[in-house]
Write a protein that binds this DNA or RNA. Structure first.
Lengths: 286, 286
DNA sequence: CTAGTTCTCTGACTAAGGTCAGAGGATGGA
DNA sequence: TCCATCCTCTGACCTTAGTCAGAGAACTAG
């Protein structure tokens, strides 16, 4: 890894993360413990199930329970057993809790404004643009890619989403396509949620196919498609594959652009997939 | 303040600051309390006076003392009374402490590398560039500008630095220039240290002069000159000034460019400053 | 209906972070 | 020389953060 890049990230972490982070926490905790303030914020205007809070904030159930009791005695929150399942309890903000949260909101705005205030208009625009770029790329970097079995729930979710999108885009019918029979599926997750995937099917000796590649709309533009393609190629190479093939529908123009940019070249049909218009192939480098 | 800009800053704070901040802390504290780890880091390879640590980390003296004792019993630090003043004690890292710090350094590198690792080369470059931009602009935003008296130590520091720079750049001699006799001096500070300033001198009714404007080399390129000029104009306007004048030496090309960009136009000599080659004037808007 | 699981809560506990008052030596200015 | 101040340290104390074990009610699969 290039040393100057690493040094750049470290400088950023030192200056930005610590200084702005400390500011952020200081404003959030107005005479209330930071944990409770965060919790108040996270519950939100519409309330939130306790178990949802637990998983989102990654808190010990005892600890969370105690904090909720604290907010409850402060009159900011009520916890009731609302839904069908009487074990699950839901935390809701009272009027006072909503007011408190609105105050936090105002203070977060004020903090952001105070950062922008000393800058001139051009600097403000540049700062916000650079912040958005950093955020986007850090999110991209937080995406995890792992190899799972085709039947893994995350893989199933990706494949279903893939079918759903094709159905919506060009009237695809899952029953008519060639069954995939995948050797492996790569799942990309963000904060534990599957946001993309790509399947590898070993066909003949040294030949693999990329199938069921999908990227969630929520993470488009982060280069995830390119990354998945590269990782599936790496997985194929690790299994002795020399040539990777794939086919696609003509309406999927972004996918076609991706394949061409990744070094695939169009070849004649190598299968009779009813929905395919283009067939591609790439010889992997040793 | 534009709402979308504020929203952008808030998104950044949420996603980046908290997530990377938490990561940063987690790696830093390897089975040692975070406070002690930070302290170890801050002492540095060359040691550091205890009072310096106290002010840099803004710690209670008792608390700091206790943490130093902790590091001392762990064999990572020695605290001795080194210098001329026997009250002041200096913390130094032992060999074990240096090794520990080097390990922290390695881990910080690894953390940075792990952020870059999932990205492709183009994304890495863009991320680091955007991080540098964010950092630069946040530093610019942390600069404080305040009006002080000409004799304030910070003002004196700025004026001395100004003279020193002119001396170095074109053989300026402070004894030969027109005495300034300033009405007010604006000092820009970063983390409490003066990094720039500009003086205002009221001459005739409705006429002010900008004198002794200086920006430290450490913060060049952050738009501080432009900001100081704008703030000194605002201060002048608040004192009933309609026309701002200033003169400059021909070697100070950045300054001349700044004045022109800020709406100053060149006029005839309005004083007999021996080092001046250009005289500028700007009519302030109501 | 039963046995195992899920969800929340309480009690008991520990570590870390942080504050405050004051002791005691060292220094510096009148 | 003396008194106020500075620097560091100790003791006493408090809050926040976080962990662990287990109880008890509610649910679910067989």
């Amino acid at each position: 890894m290039d040393v100057t890049l690493v040094e750049g990230v470290r400088r950023f972490n030192r200056t930005v993360t610590q200084r702005i982070g400390a500011l952020d926490d200081a404003f959030l905790s107005r005479d209330r413990p930071l944990g409770q303030a965060r919790l108040l914020w996270e519950i939100g205007a519409d309330g939130c199930e306790v178990r949802e809070l637990r998983s989102r904030l990654e808190l010990d159930s005892g600890y969370l329970s105690r904090m909720l009791r604290g907010l409850e005695t402060a009159g900011l929150v009520v916890v009731d057993t609302g839904g069908a399942d009487a074990r699950v309890r839901t935390a809701r903000l009272t009027a006072a809790g909503l007011a408190e949260r609105a105050e936090l909101d105002r203070r977060a705005d004020a903090l952001a404004a105070s950062i922008l205030q000393p800058l001139n208009a051009g600097q403000r625009d540049r700062l916000v643009a650079a912040m958005a770029e950093v955020e986007r790329l850090l999110v991209a970097s937080m995406v995890d890619v792992a190899v799972v079995d085709e039947r893994h729930p995350d893989a199933a979710h990706c494949i279903e989403s893939y079918f759903a999108e094709l159905t919506q885009r060009f009237g695809f019918d899952p029953a008519r396509t060639i069954p995939a029979d995948l050797t492996a599926y790569l799942v990309a997750t963000l904060h534990g949620e599957p946001v993309g995937g790509a399947g590898l099917k070993l066909v003949d000796a040294g030949v693999g196919e990329v199938k069921r590649m999908w990227v969630s709309a929520s993470v488009r533009g982060l280069g995830l498609g390119r990354r998945l393609l590269a990782e599936v190629e790496a997985a194929a190479r690790g299994r002795g594959v020399r040539v990777v093939r794939l086919e696609t529908n003509r309406t999927l123009v972004e996918a076609i652009a991706l394949y061409l940019a990744a070094g695939y070249r169009e070849v004649g049909a190598f299968n009779d997939e009813p929905y395919a218009h283009h067939w591609f192939e790439k010889v992997l480098e040793a």
